[in-house]
Amino acid sequence: MSTQAPAAARPRRQGGILAGRSTRLTRGYSGALRLGVALAVILVVLDVGLPLVMHLNPGAVNLFDRFRSLNTPGHPLGTDDLGRDVLARVVYGFRWSVGVAATATTVLILIGGLAGVIAAAVGGIVQQVVVRAIDLSISLPYLVIAVVILAVLGHGFVPLCLTLGVVSWPIFARVIYTESRSLLQRDYVLAARLAGVRPYKSVLTHVIPGLKTVTMVMTAFLFADMIVAESALSFLGLGATLGSPSLGTMLSDGRTYMVTAPTLTVIPGAAIVLAVITANLIGDGIAHGASSDEGQFE
């Protein structure tokens, strides 16, 4: 009795006969991904490259050179209230903000991811504790908590990263928790259990790979959140030290001169916006690109 399917079986989507074709909508979203990645590349290249080709000193104070406007020779973006070069400060400030955001995001992904998966897989007391902790943290205003923690830890790169990580891990943990629980309900996880596969192995084989997409998407969005959060904290005077510029401190410093020298706030503000848009485009692009793949898996 021959039982081999004639020729190659078509990839069958759960939806039935409808082929998953790129409609105008999904093509629009992969465009978002491409745009986001392109922007990210441009920003990184500029941020790394400009200091190499130009002589940029963000901290050089020159009281004779204050409030220079755009396109001043030697200061393409002008100078601020202390005569410091705005371009240099934006480049280094961007570096700082991105550095903090990236580190904080990494920290919170690791803590939150572990917490979420373990809570979902282990159940029992551990699950209760983690879930309550998540609910509690989310209900508290992050800015207030961050302020309190930073007041204790002081200024600097490490305290900022730690604070942001500690305050934000529950957001990611909750998403991972729900996703993991959903994956753990699947029949194929039950089938593994019935075959005697050990629970931790089952989690590694069946749950973790299923979290890839949501992790990538959340990383992008949380990164954007961290940029804004860092800027906010630095704006308030916490976080960034007096020496190292941050987009947030630039906003704070320039606030006094918003009417007379608007570029001092607009330019760092634009940099923040640009970073956030880039991250969001990437997150959106991955999310929608994945959801036309995911349909194949569900």
Binding site: M1, S2, T3, Q4, A5, P6, A7, A8, A9, R10
Partner: peptide, 21 residues
């Protein structure tokens, strides 16, 4: 009593009668 084989996918339909194989 089984029928051997399976229904062809639309793109891999054989020439002639689809059930012939």
């Amino acid at each position: 009593i089984p029928i051997p084989g399976s229904q062809p996918a639309p793109l891999s339909r054989p020439p002639g009668c689809a059930f012939a194989p």
